[in-house]
């Protein structure tokens, strides 16, 4: 436990130190990489609430990541083209304001998670994996054919959106925004895990029938966790689109869902900073190995295989001990 807190502190400190160094050394690309890692970590922290706490193996979290991305893309697209988003009963305009975009991203992905969860949670095990994957593919193909918003080509945004009081075009400022959000979400995650709700969810994951016998409703607990999980991943999607100033159907693809899950498995399922460690390692590998070969995923695959076969608690489990690892 204590070793894990040291590790968490170390990882988060590293995530501050590297961009800080990059500012001094004038290496903006490193800041972008760090921001990318932070946003991936946020998306995976979202999934970790469903997967780690609730035991829901969702292979469809790209839905929420993509919804967040498109929430940003669509709102900013209308703002930069000065065309209203809706012009019927109400006039809804686009916006370049990050907080508004985040809110829209979170609400829409929350609604999507509620609907998908209501259907998917009627199943379990491998069927749950398949049905969430199916939802992911539905959104993916829908976005490809959605010509209004670029179809397969996606949407480009000329300028990064605005945040009150900060110039978001300066990379370190945008990094600071993303990192602060990650810290807040990690804190929330830690609080949820130890709250009566989190404990009940944990109990329902371990022995559903016993949890029911003490009056807990596993389905309801899982649904709430799934929605919270979707909301967080949706927020990460909005930030990711803002980082790239671009959103495309790729964000909805099953590969994206898979990557979000890989971050967690690499770092450690159900460990608070598992997703952070996993995302940082992934981005580093992507950068270092990607330079060596276009087929760098082969090395990632080998690493993943080793982690799954020999260190079940992920990298965090390897360093901090397996005593609280996911069963």
């Amino acid at each position: 436990m204590i070793r894990e807190s040291y590790l968490n502190t170390f990882v988060l400190a590293l995530l501050i130190a590297v961009p800080a160094w990059a500012v001094v050394a004038n290496e903006p690309f490193t800041i972008t990489l760090a921001t990318r890692a932070v946003i991936f970590a946020l998306a995976a922290t979202g999934l970790n609430i469903a997967l780690g706490l609730g035991g829901m193996v969702s292979l469809g979290h790209a839905v929420f990541f993509g919804i967040g991305g498109y929430a940003m893309g669509i709102l900013a697209h209308h703002a930069q083209t000065y065309t209203p988003l809706m012009d019927g009963l109400f006039l809804i305009e686009g916006t370049k304001s990050m907080p508004v975009i985040w809110l829209v991203a979170m609400v829409t992905s929350g609604i999507a998670a509620l609907l998908i969860g209501l259907v998917s949670l009627r199943t379990g095990g491998v069927y749950f994996i398949m049905i969430t994957l199916a939802f992911g593919q539905m959104f993916y193909y829908f976005s490809i054919s959605w010509a209004t918003y670029g179809g397969e080509d996606g949407l480009s945004i000329y300028l990064r959106n605005d945040f009150p009081g900060l110039n978001t075009l300066v990379p370190i400022n945008f990094f600071a925004i993303c990192f602060t959000i990650l810290l807040i979400v990690l804190l929330l995650n830690a609080l949820i895990a130890k709250s009566p709700f989190g404990l009940a969810l944990n109990a329902a994951r371990q022995v559903p029938q016993r949890a029911e016998a003490v009056g807990l409703n596993p389905q309801r607990l899982k649904l709430v966790a799934f929605v919270i999980s979707g909301v967080i991943t949706g927020l990460a999607g909005a930030l990711f689109a803002d980082l790239n100033r671009f959103v495309s159907p790729t964000m909805f693809s099953w590969q994206t869902s898979g990557e979000i899950m890989i971050f967690i498995i690499l770092g450690g399922v159900a460990r608070l900073c598992g997703p952070v460690v996993g995302a940082v390692v992934f981005v580093m590998l992507e950068h270092v190995l990607g330079d060596l070969s276009d087929y760098w995923h082969i090395y990632l695959g080998v690493l993943l295989l080793l982690v799954v076969m020999f260190v079940r608690g992920g990298i965090v489990g390897l360093i901090a001990g397996k005593h609280v690892a996911h069963d």
Binding site: K194, P196, L199, A200, N202, A203, Q206, V207, R210, A211, V214, G215, L216, V324, D327
Partner: peptide, 16 residues
Amino acid sequence: RCFASLTVHENLIAAA
């Protein structure tokens, strides 16, 4: 059949 990976206190809180 207690909730194995929760502490004693957490087992109680989860059902409260």
